[in-house]
Design a protein around this nucleic acid. Structure first.
Length: 334
DNA sequence: AAGGTACTCAACCGCAAATTA
DNA sequence: CTAATTTGCGGTTGAGTACCT
């Protein structure tokens, strides 16, 4: 282990992370550009990657004729140019899953991103830091989120539902809501997550919008195979509203004092096992296989069977019952 | 319409792990 | 085995933009 060379991408020629184009020199006196990528640079990198695949990133930068360091090329490809990237706002399911995964994984953005194909760790990190963190803060202070006032956008409808849940939660379990430390943030998210169960959201979303749920699984079939109605889950009573993501019913809030992480995970696992065994595994179709192959061909950064480990406990074991998104792609038709 | 504030997101930095020579 | 290099990650910054007063 050693520090990177001063001439590398982390050159201290500028402390700005801003978007001005700044030229720095590497050890070969070749000027390296920094800052925003031009469309021409994007084209060069895209063409090179599609034709040659991923190799050593410094070679990519050189061979593609880019005056960028390899690190910059890698970042640009992973966060912006990769053909499998999703665009647009996070779906309610993705949002719920992020909250859920963050409660399990903390700030391990790359591992969270690995469960959300088409999303990058940077994207998720930004989403968390700007949107979710703010909501947790509002929850902590008890003040309503400014976002809740905008009920016109679908995203805000969903998150408005989230907020109202958070506000309910704030009165119930204030002990989890009073610190900005990361661990406490995780606890907040966990507390939140106990009510914002992604599976519950999946189920409700399917209930109310089978007509728009498309992609790799058949929603009506799913409903027929497993009875996971809101009444079956500890997070809801099945009395679902028509706009918010179904939190307007009364909430069952488990005692947090009595539910540790392991218990919580096991409780959730109980519900997820049936789901995974009966539904998701049956949906592994050719689309997914081909997609995975294509991604491998262009050097994609996530792997379907990525092995996950965290600290001293077996992350894979912990995560095995969390729906794996490579098997379920939420694409909504217009 | 103008100025101020809040928010988003692309891109940077530093560090550490992994890999290669 | 060691040093050098590459890769990957999480934290942070700041320009651009949307929203508010």
């Amino acid at each position: 282990m050693r520090k990177p060379e001063p001439s590398s991408c982390s050159s201290s020629s500028s402390s700005s992370a801003g978007k001005d184009i700044i030229n720095v020199q590497n050890s070969n006196n070749v000027k390296l550009r920094k800052g925003l990528w031009s469309p021409e640079e994007d084209d060069k990198l895209m063409n090179y990657m599609l034709n040659n695949g991923q190799g050593c990133w410094s070679d990519v930068a050189r061979n593609a004729g880019l005056q960028r360091c390899g690190k910059s090329c890698r970042l640009r490809w992973i966060n912006y140019l990769r053909p499998d990237l999703k665009r647009g706002a996070f779906s309610p399911q993705e949002e719920a899953l992020i909250i859920h995964l963050h409660s399990l994984l903390g700030n391990r953005w790359s591992q969270i991103a690995a469960r959300l194909p088409g999303r990058t760790d940077n994207e998720i990190k930004n989403f968390w830091n700007s949107t979710v963190k703010k909501r947790l803060r509002n929850l902590q202070s008890g003040s309503p989120s400014p976002n809740t006032s905008d009920s016109s956008s679908p995203k805000h409808q969903v998150m408005g539902g989230l907020i109202s849940m958070q506000e309910q939660a704030a009165g119930i379990m204030p002990m989890y809501m009073d610190s900005s430390s990361s661990s406490s943030s995780s606890m907040q998210a966990m507390a939140l997550n106990q009510m914002v169960d992604p599976l519950h959201m999946f189920q409700h979303d399917l209930n109310m919008s089978n007509n728009i749920a498309s992609g790799y699984f058949n929603a009506p079939q799913y409903m027929a195979q497993i009875d996971l109605g809101g009444d079956d889950l500890p997070g809801g009573n099945g009395a679902l509203g028509d706009v918010d993501i179904g939190f307007d019913g009364e909430m069952f809030v488990p005692s947090l004092e009595s539910v540790g992480i392991e218990e919580k995970v096991e409780t959730e696992n109980t519900y997820r096992r049936a789901m995974n065994n009966n539904t998701f595994h049956n949906t592994n179709n050719n689309n997914n296989i081909n997609r995975a192959e294509n991604l491998a061909r262009v050097g994609n950064c996530w792997e379907v069977d990525q092995e996950l480990r965290m600290g001293e406990w077996d992350l894979e074991e912990l995560m095995k019952d969390v729906p794996s998104f490579p098997l379920v792609d939420f694409q909504f038709s217009n």
